Each structure stands twice: as structure tokens, then as C-alpha cells.
Amino acid sequence: MIPFWEWHRVGVDRARATAILRACHHAPHPEEAAAMTLPDATHRLQLIPGIGPWTAAETLQRTLGAPDALTLGDLH
């Protein structure tokens, strides 16, 4: 329900805001990832449009404490 100009005001562009909203829509039960293997959790995240290998690895490193989630690719 947040308009895109509000996202922009806090430094989030439209593409990233859209990816965040898709993730919220597709993942109503994010705690399920804690019970998955790392490859399964990575695959599940990457099914969401806008979430690629880099974002999946960074997310799993921080949320699950998964040091084996390798950040591949380039941020830019």
C-alpha cells in the first residue's frame, strides 16, 4: 500500500520495491526456509522474479546464518 514515491524517498528504486513486494506476496511463510537445505532455500528464493543468485545468497547469509551461501556475481 506504500506508493512508489515513498519507496524512492528512502532510496529504494521502483525495480527493487517491486522485487520486495513480490517476495512478500510469494513468501507468506518465510520461516519454512529455516527447515530447508541450503540449495532448496536458494532455489525457492530464486523462483521469485527479481531475486537472483546474489540476492538469494545475501539473504540466506543474514537470515539463516548460512556461511556456505556464496555470493556469486556482481552487485552492480
Rank of each mutant, 00 (worst) to 15 (best):
M1A: 10
I2D: 03
P3V: 10
F4M: 12
F4T: 10
F4P: 12
W5Q: 11
W5S: 11
E6I: 14
E6K: 14
H8R: 15
R9Y: 13
R9T: 09
R9L: 13
V10I: 07
G11R: 07
V12G: 00
V12D: 00
V12N: 05
D13H: 13
D13G: 15
D13S: 08
D13L: 02
D13Y: 11
D13C: 04
R14Q: 14
A15N: 10
A15S: 05
A15E: 11
R16E: 04
R16Y: 12
A17I: 05
A17S: 10
A17Q: 13
T18R: 06
T18Y: 03
T18N: 07
A19H: 06
A19Q: 03
A19E: 05
A19W: 11
I20R: 00
L21A: 15
L21F: 11
L21K: 00
L21I: 11
R22G: 13
C24W: 12
H25M: 07
H26W: 11
P28V: 04
P28C: 06
H29A: 13
P30A: 05
E31F: 09
E31H: 12
E31N: 07
E32H: 12
A33F: 15
A35M: 11
A35C: 04
A35N: 12
A35H: 12
M36P: 06
M36H: 11
M36I: 12
T37M: 07
T37A: 13
T37G: 13
T37S: 15
T37K: 00
T37V: 10
T37Q: 09
L38D: 09
L38K: 12
P39C: 04
P39K: 01
D40K: 01
A41D: 07
T42F: 04
T42D: 15
T42P: 00
H43P: 08
H43S: 07
L45S: 01
L45N: 01
Q46K: 14
L47F: 09
I48Q: 08
I48H: 09
I48Y: 00
I48D: 02
P49L: 00
G50L: 08
G50H: 00
G52M: 07
G52K: 12
G52R: 13
P53I: 01
P53M: 04
W54T: 03
W54N: 10
W54K: 14
W54Q: 12
T55V: 15
T55R: 03
T55A: 13
A56T: 05
A56M: 02
A56H: 02
A57Q: 03
E58H: 05
E58S: 02
E58D: 05
E58I: 08
L60M: 05
L60I: 10
L60T: 01
Q61W: 03
Q61I: 04
R62H: 07
T63A: 15
L64Y: 01
L64V: 06
L64P: 01
G65T: 08
G65C: 02
G65A: 03
G65P: 01
G65Q: 03
A66E: 08
A66D: 00
P67L: 00
D68C: 04
D68T: 06
A69M: 01
L70A: 15
L70D: 04
L70C: 08
L70S: 06
L70R: 15
L70K: 15
T71N: 06
T71H: 06
T71R: 01
G73M: 09
D74K: 12
D74C: 10
D74I: 05
